[in-house]
């Protein structure tokens, strides 16, 4: 819907606003600037835009200034906790490192001999009990498994320009906060894919730039655009 022209000029409201927002080409901007100089009504409209912007900025800044500093400090504490939690999660595998054992070893330095004797006794006990009550389901508590590299042989492509062998893909549990449950050893194998997935999309929003959905019946692929072009469809709020 185009706007009415303002005053005696051919400058529309939207064009004036685009000029105010610095969105016009140099040529158009010059034309609007000249029209503003020449037309009082247009100048008034232009000032309205400036005033409105200033009012919104000050109105919201005033609102922000009404929040006590303690609230922002409280929020920082929450952020700090989340950051610490992230760091802990990220370094978890590293924590099971020789340094910990080194520290434990050092702490027990005066007790090494009796500790080793006790450990040996415990090991013997566990072995004996284990012999009596062996349970194949008592699998080791593997949390993270690094799967072997997909060492697919390069079929006769010796020109040196072929693809590089991939580094070992890593199987890991999600490292985010939610319900991260260590997978059972059986869960480390891929799931057996059924013949038809029967994907039904109920609601979809493909970000700002869009993308597309492809459904061949056997496989449904959602193509996302990382650097989206201008979209015509609107992302609903």
């Amino acid at each position: 819907m185009m706007r009415d022209q303002i005053g005696a000029t051919d400058i529309s409201d939207e064009m004036l606003a685009a000029y105010f927002d610095g969105e016009l080409s140099d040529a158009d901007a010059e034309r609007v600037a000249a029209a503003i100089d020449a037309d009082a009504e247009l100048r008034g409209e232009f000032e309205q835009l400036g005033l409105l912007g200033g009012l919104v900025q000050h109105g919201l800044a005033r609102k922000a200034n009404q929040v006590p500093q303690a609230r922002f400090e409280q929020i920082w504490d929450e952020i700090d906790r989340a950051i610490a939690n992230d760091a802990r999660t990220a370094s978890e595998p590293k924590e099971i490192s020789p340094s910990i054992w080194g520290r434990v070893w050092a702490a027990f330095k005066p007790l090494r001999v009796p500790a080793i004797a006790a450990a040996a006794a415990a090991a013997v006990t566990v072995y004996v009990v284990g012999q009596d009550d062996s349970d194949p389901n008592k699998a080791s508590d593997t949390v993270v498994e690094v799967t072997p590299s997909p060492s697919t042989p390069e079929p006769g492509n010796d020109d040196g320009a072929g693809p590089q062998p991939m580094p070992a893909p890593v199987t890991k549990i999600a490292d985010a906060n939610p319900v991260v449950v260590p997978p059972e050893p059986s869960e480390l194998a891929p799931m057996e894919v059924p013949d038809a997935s029967g994907v039904e999309i109920h609601n979809i929003d493909l970000g700002g730039g869009g993308g597309r959905i492809s459904n061949t019946g056997t496989v449904t692929v959602l193509y996302l655009d990382e650097e989206p072009a201008q979209a015509d469809s609107e992302r609903s709020l």
């Binding site: 912007g53 919104v56 869009g210």
Partner: peptide, 24 residues
């Protein structure tokens, strides 16, 4: 626009619509 000073193009990307829609 008024607080973040975003361009029409960035606003369009954020709201998933065209620049023309943002302008209007």
């Amino acid at each position: 626009r008024e607080l973040q000073g975003m361009s029409y193009a960035d606003m369009a990307k954020e709201m998933g619509c065209s620049k023309g829609t943002i302008m209007s």
